Amino acid sequence: MQIKQEKGHYTLYKENEAIGMAVVDGATILRLEIVPEWRGRGYGSYLVKELLRRGGGLDPKQTTRFTAPLPRDEAGRALARRFDFLPEGGRLVRRRVPDLSAVQLCHEFLEAHLTPGGLFLDATCGNGNDTLFLCSLAGQNGRVLGMDIQPQAVDRTNRRLKEAGYDKIGRAVLYDHARLGELVQPGKVDCVLFNFGWLPGAEHDIHSTADGSVPALRAALDALRPGGVLAAVLYSGKVIGDAEKQAALAFFRTLPLTKYTVLVCEFANWADTAPLPCFVIKK
């Protein structure tokens, strides 16, 4: 099958025969039809799915809103329900709001609790996403230090910092996060961010483990100033098991309430292996 597009007009072909069409204006499907003799074979679903895909409606990280006219028959209504279009105000509306990810939750928490101008550490810089976020949070008067044990992660992060114009604020170094206390003075850091697991896009046999992660968490707490925040996303699964996750949680439970506030933010209706965001606020 093939779909040809011309100025909002989509034609669905099976081999050389046009069997369906749609007219779209932005995120509004104005018209959609399948030739009668080709109906009931899934071609309507194929066409709708492709329209949504091209408009970002299948992207789990994107907020979208599509509209369409009310269908005239039960087949049309069934097709609408299949793709989560619901009647609203005399038309069909399909809304998609992205799930809140563990990393996004960490970012939002840090934005709400920290102010620009401090010293921020990305203890697992990976591809540089968290390092760039911390640079935006630190501002021109702040400083960000990223670290990783994999050279490609450090190189990639520094390249992204330069491309984004953050190389005057942040930099990444080749370093074991278990020894982060050697790079900063105790009690001087505003935030330490961990995103454990493996480097996205790399081999999964290289990943963080409890042997290094727990000492790193301990060193991070020593580095934090009063009011500073440690944020960590813990992972588990078939490849890495759950030893690191359980060891980190056990460590968090030992922290005295007189010195720390500890939050473990479980996604209650997700799988047990879902990423687990945790926060420690130093008093």
Rank of each mutant, 00 (worst) to 15 (best):
Q2A: 08
I3G: 05
Q5K: 13
E6R: 15
E6M: 11
K7Y: 08
E15D: 14
E15V: 03
E17N: 08
G20T: 09
V23S: 12
D25Y: 10
L32E: 07
I34R: 14
V35A: 15
G40E: 13
Y43V: 07
E50W: 06
E50R: 12
L52N: 05
R54H: 07
G57I: 04
D59A: 11
Q62R: 15
T63K: 15
T64D: 11
L70I: 14
L70C: 12
R72T: 08
E74C: 06
A78E: 10
A80I: 11
R94K: 13
P98F: 11
L100D: 04
A102L: 06
E108L: 14
E108I: 05
F109R: 14
F109H: 09
L110A: 06
A112P: 03
H113M: 13
T115E: 14
G126R: 00
G128V: 00
L132E: 00
L134V: 07
G139D: 05
G142M: 05
V144N: 03
G146K: 02
D148G: 01
Q152I: 10
A153Y: 03
V154W: 06
V154L: 08
D155F: 08
R156E: 06
A164I: 01
Y166E: 00
D167I: 00
R171N: 04
V173N: 02
L174S: 06
R179V: 00
E182F: 04
V192L: 06
W198V: 00
G201L: 06
S208V: 04
S208I: 04
D211I: 06
G212D: 02
G212E: 02
V214L: 08
A216F: 03
R218K: 12
A223E: 01
P226R: 13
L230V: 08
A231F: 02
Y235C: 05
S236Y: 04
K238M: 04
E244W: 05
Q246G: 05
A248H: 02
A250E: 12
R253C: 09
T254C: 10
L257P: 04
Y260H: 14
T261N: 15
V262P: 02
V264K: 05
E266Q: 14
N269R: 13
W270Y: 08
W270P: 00
A271P: 01
A274K: 00
